Amino acid sequence: MAAIFFNKLGNTDEAAIRWLARLDMPDLSDRDKQAFYHWLNSSEKHQAAYLRAEQLSSRSNQLQNSNNLELLFNGEAQGRSSADGLSVSATKGKALISFGLPAWQSWALSCSIMLMGVAVLFNVLQANDITSYHYQTAVGELQSHTLADGSTVWLNTATELSIELGEHERKAYLKKGEALFDVRHRDGQSFEVYTDSGVVQVLGTKFSVYYDNRDATVTVLEGKVALGFAQDENASFEHQQVLLPNQSLTFQAVRDGEQPKTVDAKSVLSWRNKRLSYQGVALELVVKDLNRYFDEEITMVDDDAFRQMPVTANFRVTSVDEAVYKLAVSLDLDVSVSDAGQTHTLAPRGN
């Protein structure tokens, strides 16, 4: 319950304060710990907010050495005293708390008061609820996930993706790799995918974005998407190009004014079913694509005509040995393997 409640908070600093307090509670569970690390690692903003919360904690610890702790809060309180030696006197906006408590109890008290302020704000923050997701795949690993809005996302090999779903907007951040999105339509609410190359905006469709740390390629399977650019996630989106089903384009091509390429999107995106399909694709491009899925490397001899040899093949992604074997059989190639088994080199037969 705690993990779900914390993640609903729209304000990052409020969430950081809650996590800091929760981590000191004796009933902290393994599930809470996992949720905390998921929240912390999903955004640099979360990490910065948590550092600020820790600094606040440190300052509070310094104040605990005195007998008075002055706290600011939005509200009014009446003076009272207790048998524990605690007295509170307050006016709107400020409270002076005098106590004779052990240090840990003082910090717990200050945390409790801060968290009461957070709880008071919770109903206001609900209007800006943001549900965050962070996914990452290893080399050769594939994943699929259904989001809270009913959309589905598939992650290809070596991919890192963060998603934020809010009441008024849905945003995804593709840091590397390739993701296929099946976006559930919502009236008046777009779905945007950000890469370092540009932004993809949709209302409801099925498309993929592949970012190779230099440029991003967008391929549409169903519906249509708009490609454009924005200075940052808060800047207005201005689309430059629209893609329809079975069309593909890179952001660099958009900048250069090129037209979309016609592709067999179903074949291009067959990786989500753990299959790779190529229709007349140059061998060097096939090898480059295959190398995304394995720790071992596939190389080719330095022969331009050989590298441009067209490949038409369809096979499952299981191991580098099987992939190389199928290429060698279908194209009548020679294969040499390094002593360590980490490099497979392709060459024309009898070369």
Rank of each mutant, 00 (worst) to 15 (best):
D334E: 15
A323F: 10
T318Q: 05
P348Q: 06
T343V: 15
Q342W: 02
Q308P: 02
N351A: 14
L285Q: 14
D339G: 08
E322M: 06
N314F: 04
A313T: 03
Q308H: 15
T312H: 06
K288F: 07
A282N: 11
D304T: 14
V337A: 03
T343H: 06
A347T: 07
T299P: 02
M300W: 05
L331T: 08
V311A: 04
T318Y: 01
V329K: 03
N291Y: 05
T343C: 07
R292E: 09
F306M: 04
A282M: 10
K288L: 14
D295G: 00
A328L: 00
T299C: 02
V335G: 13
L290E: 04
A328T: 02
F315Y: 14
L285D: 12
S338T: 15
V301A: 09
T312V: 11
S336D: 13
F294Q: 11
L327S: 11
V324H: 05
S319R: 06
T345S: 06
V335I: 14
R316C: 02
I298T: 11
V301K: 07
L327A: 09
N291C: 04
L333K: 05
E296P: 02
V286M: 05
G341K: 10
F294V: 09
A347G: 05
T318I: 07
P310Y: 04
V301S: 07
E284K: 14
A282H: 07
Y293S: 12
E296A: 12
A347V: 10
D339Q: 08
D295C: 00
A340K: 14
D304Q: 12
I298M: 11
V311N: 02
P348N: 05
Q342F: 03
S336F: 02
K326I: 13
R292N: 13
G350A: 13
N291P: 07
V335N: 11
V337S: 03
V301H: 04
D332F: 00
V324P: 03
A323M: 14
I298K: 11
L333S: 09
V287F: 02
R349F: 12
Q342V: 00
D303F: 01
D332A: 07
K326P: 00
M309F: 00
N314W: 01
D295A: 07
L331Y: 03
V301Y: 02
R292T: 13
A323R: 13
A340F: 07
N351Y: 15
P348W: 01
A282E: 15
D304V: 13
V337Y: 01
A323T: 11
V324K: 03
Y293W: 15
V287T: 10
G341R: 12
V335F: 08
L333T: 10
S330W: 00
L283W: 08
V324Y: 03
N314P: 00
S336M: 12
E296R: 01
S319H: 05
S330D: 08
R292S: 08
S319K: 03
I298Q: 09
M309I: 01
A328W: 00
V287N: 09
A347Q: 13
A305D: 14
D303K: 03
S330N: 08
K326F: 10
D289T: 11
A328G: 02
M309E: 15
A323E: 13
A313Q: 01
N351P: 00
V329E: 13
L327I: 07
N291D: 07
N351V: 10
M309K: 12
I298G: 06
L331R: 06
R307C: 06
Y325E: 11
L290A: 08
T312P: 05
